[in-house]
């Protein structure tokens, strides 16, 4: 069969505009930066890989687990989170200072960035999409209890909810409450159950179904 170029009724060149707007702009910007020696392709790949796979919220989970098992570490964390997190040699120090805020039976903390989406990447990886949404950024401050409810968390009236607004220089990590039933667990076991959402403060740490006594 020869090439009937109107088979599908389209007479135009099917190859036109294979790049969408932003993809084209990124390609253009990247090629200029490569030429200027400001970026190189391998480093860019490494950054993407690191933030997608290696960082995640696992670094933060280890910090939380250590604070749960080591009272001295917890004191250091609450006094100077930047330094306490740096004790884990492998967590990259980013531009911002870290502050750890502790949940208790009477206080719940949650973190937002009302201006953009400042987020403690080195400990939590990339922010989830809801964290970046206008709705969360606005409502976390106006109606934190309502937001928590949407995350399945009903907070009693006598529990204080504190909302922390991140900035370019200051990022917050919530130290959630250690769940009952984890007495005697190792730091590693504990780190495995600490979730990203619990460290942003929108949920508690619960025992996975299979681990409940």
């Amino acid at each position: 069969m020869s090439d009937h170029h109107g088979e599908d009724g389209l007479a135009h060149d099917p190859h036109n505009a294979p790049l969408s707007g932003p993809a084209l702009r990124v390609k253009a910007l990247e090629s200029l930066l490569l030429e200027k020696g400001l970026v190189d392709a391998r480093t860019l790949d490494e950054i993407v890989d690191t933030y997608e796979h290696k960082v995640g919220p696992r670094n933060g989970a280890r910090v939380v687990a250590r604070a749960w098992t080591d009272a001295e570490y917890k004191k250091r964390l609450l006094a100077d989170a930047t330094a306490a997190i740096a004790e884990f040699g492998y967590i990259e120090r980013w531009a911002e200072d870290m502050v750890a805020v502790e949940n208790s039976p009477t206080v719940r903390n949650m973190v937002v960035c009302t201006l953009c989406s400042c987020y403690p990447w080195p400990v939590l990886g990339l922010p989830p999409s809801w964290y970046k949404s206008d709705a969360y950024r606005a409502r976390a401050v106006l109606d934190p209890r309502g937001v928590l409810k949407e995350f399945g968390e009903t907070v009693p009236d006598d529990v204080e909810v504190r909302v922390w607004d991140s900035t370019a220089e200051l990022r917050y990590l919530v130290l959630p409450e250690r769940p009952a039933g984890t007495e005697g667990w190792s730091e590693e076991q504990l780190a495995a159950i600490v979730t990203r959402d619990s460290m942003v403060g929108v949920s508690r740490v619960n025992l996975p179904a299979g681990m409940r006594p």
């Binding site: 969408s20 932003p22 993809a23 990124v26 390609k27 910007l29 990247e30 930066l33 400001l38 970026v39 480093t43 860019l44 790949d45 950054i47 993407v48 933030y51 997608e52 990339l126």
Partner: peptide
């Protein structure tokens, strides 16, 4: 492209 834009920003 989102990942590339993100990575370029960090690197710059």
């Amino acid at each position: 492209w989102e990942a590339q834009a993100f990575a370029m920003t960090l690197e710059l």
